[in-house]
Design a binder for these strands. Structure first.
Lengths: 232, 232
DNA sequence: CGTTCGCTTGAACTAATTCAAGATAAGTGG
DNA sequence: CCACTTATCTTGAATTAGTTCAAGCGAACG
């Protein structure tokens, strides 16, 4: 049910029924198998997506071939609003890390929506502004904070975004290799591995192959905020 | 002449006369002496500014008190479009580094403009998207590149934005201390000083107290892009 | 004219990277 | 079901880019 999905993402939340129906009507379905790309950096921005299922990676490749992960996206996440802008190109890659299903609006449908429903144009501005502020905060982190804190913050952000509660803790609900965490935090897979090993020994996380579970999120928050450890 | 100034900034460029007149009519003037703040991070976003003269610094302060400079702004630059969003707060400080004069629109005037002239709403989206992409690129640089390249890029960006041609080279047209460059590139004032000294010895830049002049921008570009030095 | 502020430089230090070697776990095909 | 292959992860040791700290210089400013 498209309309149901839309109600759950901030961009379409709390709209009147006619607007929501118009939005749903313009959407197509797109399936992307794990590992394949929705689009590449530099492609003409042709579609705006809302993920229905699966997880995807937002990343850039440096001219030297090093990858930087800007973030992960899960169900209900909106990606590619830049398609609303005439002639714009995607500024990053969007790669499915599992089989994905998404709703997609092409430029014409998206343009029509934003014109006939000005509230959506304002929401687009609000959405991009919000992401801009988030990115600014991450930029500040990267410029001023040590690796351990950045990894702690990245994990907390990930479970907030795409976490799944488990018997004892919260798991990042997407495959997440050490290399991925390194590319998210601007460090190396070796450093991430050492940090996770140390945390595992302290019972803060438990992790395995492409999997990280937070066992003590409060303690991780203390590391992220650089607060003193509670005395014992 | 407000309208004249507006024509020179991308946000208002190439508008029909009535729209431009409406925009100019809603603007107030604001003078901010060097060192003082237009607004602080966390303030309710009340005004949208276009700088008429002077230079200003966009920065954040970390909870630990370390400053990060997100960029500098000069004449014709638009700042604070986030004021268009109901209830939004400024995500950074805007501090005059020289005496500044700016045009200012309050929330009501800005909201009115965007509603009555939809082209401006689209431009707002375009503007924020553009800045988002720039910030993404800087994030990638910070995550993957060495300090020397980041400083080279920062200087090239600065002269592109607010450069002033000189007898032999281009100068950053705003007071720019070593500390400022360090906070722009995520490093320390000592490292910046060493880098500038080395470049000065090679005739790439000449610099003094709060001043940097590029003598050989092409050579600096080669450093920024990590291309091989031309053989001699 | 002296004080302040920005800049430079050296020396010691360190957080993180790089490289190498091996362990562990997950498919794959016989 | 088990060997074989491959991908992920761990850990140690050496290296290094950049930081930190200390001392002093020199230009601007009151």
């Amino acid at each position: 049910m498209p309309a149901e999905l839309l109600r759950q993402c901030p961009f379409f939340a709390r709209l009147d029924d006619t607007t929501l129906a118009a939005a749903a009507a313009g959407a197509q379905h797109r399936r992307v198998p794990g590992g394949e790309f929705f689009f590449h950096q530099g492609d003409l921005a042709s579609h705006f997506y809302v993920l229905a299922s699966g997880h995807a990676r937002l990343s850039q490749i440096t001219p030297e071939g090093r990858q930087v992960i800007l973030g992960l996206a899960g169900p209900h996440h909106e990606i590619g609003i830049i398609a609303a802008i005439e002639g714009a190109i995607y500024p990053l890659d969007l790669q499915a890390i599992q089989d994905c299903v998404a709703l997609a609006w092409d430029r014409a449908a998206l343009g029509g929506l934003l014109e006939t429903h000005p509230v959506l144009a304002l929401r687009a501005l609000r959405m991009v502004s919000g992401r801009f502020v988030e990115l600014q905060d991450r930029y500040r982190e990267l410029a001023t904070e040590r690796v351990e804190r950045r990894v702690a913050r990245a994990l907390l952000r990930l479970v907030a975004q795409i976490g799944r509660p488990e018997d004892a803790g919260v798991t990042v609900a997407a495959p997440l290799a050490r290399q991925d965490l390194a590319e998210l935090t601007g460090t190396t897979l070796f450093t991430v591995s050492r940090i996770l090993s140390a945390w595992e020994a302290q019972g803060i996380v438990s992790s395995g192959r492409e999997r990280v579970t937070l066992r003590d999120p409060a303690r991780l928050t203390r590391i992220a905020e650089d607060l003193p450890e509670a005395s014992r």
